Simulated scan of single mutants.
Amino acid sequence: MAADFLLYGSYGYTGRLIVERARAAGLTPLLAGRDAAALAAQGAETGLPYRAFALDDTAALDAALREHRVVLHAAGPFSRTSRPMVDACLRTGAHYLDITGEIAVFEAVAARDAQARAAGVMLMPGAGFDVVPSDCLAAHLKRRLPSATRLQLAFQGIGGISRGTMTTMIENIHQGGAVRRGGRITRVPAAYRSRTVDFGRGPVSVTTIPWGDVSTAYHSTGIPDVEVYTRVGAGARRGMVASRHLGWLLGSGPVQRMMLKRIRGGPPGPTPEQRARGASLLWGQAEDDAGGRAVARMRTPEGYTLTAMTSVEAVRRVLAGDAPAGFQTPSKAYGADWILEFDGVERTDVE
Score class of each variant (00 low, 15 high):
81 T>N: 02
81 T>F: 03
81 T>S: 13
81 T>V: 12
82 S>F: 09
82 S>V: 12
82 S>D: 05
83 R>L: 15
84 P>D: 06
85 M>Y: 01
86 V>F: 04
86 V>G: 07
86 V>A: 02
86 V>Q: 05
88 A>K: 01
88 A>S: 11
91 R>V: 10
92 T>V: 13
92 T>S: 11
93 G>F: 08
94 A>K: 04
96 Y>F: 12
96 Y>Q: 12
96 Y>G: 12
96 Y>K: 05
98 D>L: 04
99 I>N: 00
99 I>W: 01
99 I>K: 03
100 T>R: 02
101 G>Y: 04
102 E>G: 00
102 E>W: 02
102 E>C: 06
103 I>V: 14
103 I>P: 00
105 V>D: 01
106 F>L: 13
106 F>M: 14
107 E>N: 12
111 A>P: 08
112 R>M: 12
112 R>K: 07
113 D>Y: 02
114 A>E: 15
115 Q>T: 04
115 Q>F: 01
117 R>F: 07
119 A>T: 05
121 V>P: 04
122 M>D: 03
122 M>S: 03
123 L>M: 11
123 L>P: 06
123 L>I: 13
123 L>Q: 09
124 M>K: 01
124 M>R: 00
125 P>V: 05
126 G>S: 12
127 A>D: 08
127 A>F: 07
128 G>P: 07
128 G>V: 07
128 G>Q: 04
129 F>H: 07
129 F>L: 14
130 D>E: 15
132 V>F: 01
133 P>T: 08
134 S>C: 09
134 S>F: 07
135 D>V: 10
135 D>I: 08
136 C>Q: 00
136 C>K: 00
137 L>R: 01
137 L>T: 07
138 A>T: 02
141 L>D: 00
142 K>A: 13
142 K>E: 04
143 R>S: 14
143 R>E: 14
144 R>P: 00
144 R>S: 12
145 L>G: 03
145 L>R: 10
146 P>N: 05
147 S>I: 08
148 A>L: 10
148 A>M: 09
150 R>L: 12
151 L>H: 08
151 L>W: 10
153 L>A: 11
155 F>A: 14
156 Q>E: 15
156 Q>I: 14
157 G>H: 09
158 I>D: 12
159 G>P: 05
163 R>I: 13
164 G>H: 08
164 G>C: 09
166 M>S: 11
169 M>A: 11
169 M>D: 02
169 M>F: 04
171 E>L: 15
172 N>A: 14
172 N>Y: 01
172 N>K: 06
173 I>N: 00
174 H>L: 07
175 Q>T: 15
175 Q>W: 01
176 G>C: 00
176 G>W: 00
177 G>K: 00
179 V>E: 10
179 V>C: 12
179 V>N: 09
180 R>V: 07
180 R>K: 08
182 G>C: 10
182 G>K: 02
183 G>Q: 03
183 G>S: 03
183 G>V: 09
184 R>L: 15
185 I>P: 07
185 I>H: 05
186 T>G: 10
186 T>R: 14
186 T>S: 11
188 V>M: 12
188 V>A: 14
189 P>G: 15
189 P>A: 14
189 P>T: 06
190 A>C: 07
190 A>Y: 00
190 A>P: 10
